[in-house]
Computed example of a mutant assay.
Amino acid sequence: MNSKRLFLGACLLLIAFNLRPLFTSLSVLLPEVTQALGISGAMAGYATTLPVLCLGLFAPFAATLADRHGAERVLLLVLLMIGAGSLMRAGDGVATLMVGSALAGAGIAMGNVLLPSVVKRDFPDHVAILTGLFTMSLCGGAALAAAMTTPIAQAGGSWRVGLATWAAPAFAVALLWLPHSLRSGVKGKGRALPGLRLWHDGLSWQVACFMGLQSALAYCVMGWMAPILRWRGLDAVTAGFYTSASILVQVATCLLVPPLAARFRSQSLFSAGLAFLAAAALLGLLFAPRGMLPLLALLQGIGQGGLFAIAMTIIILRSPDPRVAARLSGMSQAIGYVLAAFGPMLVGMLHSATGSYAVTAWLFAGIGIAAMACGWGAGRPLYVKPREVAARA
């Protein structure tokens, strides 16, 4: 691999790193934020849900923007939106928290869609390992934010400092990526490419629902694991540490699962097994003795990290070419993250209604069972079958 490809690969990993701190940084400070802003548990649920909902709403625009302006330039926009949104969240009032979360969430949506297609386009001979590396980087960003946000906030004397800090890496990577994005030509400029539709294809729907259900579990973890652990009696720093450790374990499974799963024609068993592990360990965090919480947090991380990695791998393996990969990624994340948005929102609503997290066990179990079923179907060794439609002038 030459130096240019190494630089491109490193930049993609750094971009991926910036796609998750938005979620875990708010999670570990959620009690402080709700108290300072005077918002209810239900409103806190909306705050954790809004950026996830934006992932679904804005995902469909990524492939079209990439066709018109080039994936590299859209990824630059992604970084700028994440940085600006992260700064806005630290502003004064609920409105800036929500608007900043939405802006950063919209950027993350497009980054989520484009990274798999860029990997398939520029690293066709290293798809599995690059998929593992960028999913590992995603988890690493989430883990670092979970571990460091509370100490940063305490050192800075305010939760606002903790949230605003995560604008810095986004802007730093944007500066690094800027020259490459400006040099990159627009692929396909001057010629109308036929549109691709996947909404008729049953396998595409299974892939999309699998992405959504595993994401629902993931965002319940990123948004509510720390509050759940604090409800179990842990202090804020320890709860943040356990959450960080759980997410950090995902780094290893994200790296190992894609190359291993790609060796097999079918990924059905991987998908169903990892969904079971992730959901079962999350249920254990609600009810198991406190002495088992560290082990269960690690097991949840193993299952959740592998589950996310296999979902991203399946998008690439079920796609015959990079353009289809971009469309399947867009469809999966449009449907998937809208579906996923209901997970953390329902956790907040159930907790607000009952004053306890115990009732969320039914939600976590239902999501886990549905993820197992959809993952089994999505893992079958088939390609999705897109339909071409006339390109717009």
Rank of each mutant, 00 (worst) to 15 (best):
S271T: 06
A261Y: 09
K385L: 12
G343K: 02
L178D: 02
A142E: 08
L115P: 03
T165S: 15
M312Y: 04
L196W: 01
N112M: 14
V28I: 12
F364Q: 05
P151A: 12
R121E: 03
R327C: 08
G140A: 13
L256N: 09
P259S: 14
L178M: 14
L80S: 09
S332G: 09
R263A: 14
S40I: 09
K120D: 00
A168H: 03
L12Y: 12
F123I: 12
G348H: 01
F134C: 11
A361Q: 04
A104D: 07
L176A: 15
L382H: 10
N2E: 10
R73Y: 08
L260H: 11
M148S: 15
S244W: 05
L339Y: 00
L293V: 14
Y337M: 05
A365H: 06
A172Q: 00
L217P: 03
G93M: 07
R318M: 09
C254W: 02
Q304V: 11
A170N: 00
S329G: 09
V161L: 14
R387E: 15
L13W: 07
S25E: 07
A280N: 07
M88W: 14
V127W: 00
R323W: 01
P51A: 11
A275R: 05
V127F: 02
G157A: 13
A371I: 00
A10H: 07
G156Q: 13
A102H: 02
L298C: 15
A358Y: 07
L53T: 09
A164L: 12
R89Q: 08
T243C: 03
T165R: 01
R323M: 01
G190C: 04
L234T: 04
P289R: 13
A155W: 13
T131R: 04
P322V: 09
N112H: 13
G45N: 06
A393G: 15
P116G: 07
A378S: 04
R232P: 07
W199P: 04
A164N: 07
P289L: 12
T360N: 06
P124H: 04
S352V: 08
P179Y: 02
L87W: 10
M349Y: 07
A95V: 08
A71N: 01
A280E: 06
T253V: 05
G100A: 08
Y219R: 09
A370Y: 02
L260K: 11
L87I: 15
G355L: 04
A147W: 15
R263D: 09
A365N: 02
L196A: 06
E388P: 04
A353R: 10
L19M: 14
P344F: 00
I15Q: 07
G273L: 08
L8W: 05
C11M: 15
E32A: 10
V99T: 08
F171S: 04
C209A: 13
L130T: 00
A62L: 05
V74M: 10
V127S: 00
L175Y: 07
S246C: 14
Y46A: 12
V173Q: 08
I335K: 00
P320H: 06
G336E: 10
M292R: 13
L103Y: 01
G284P: 12
A59N: 09
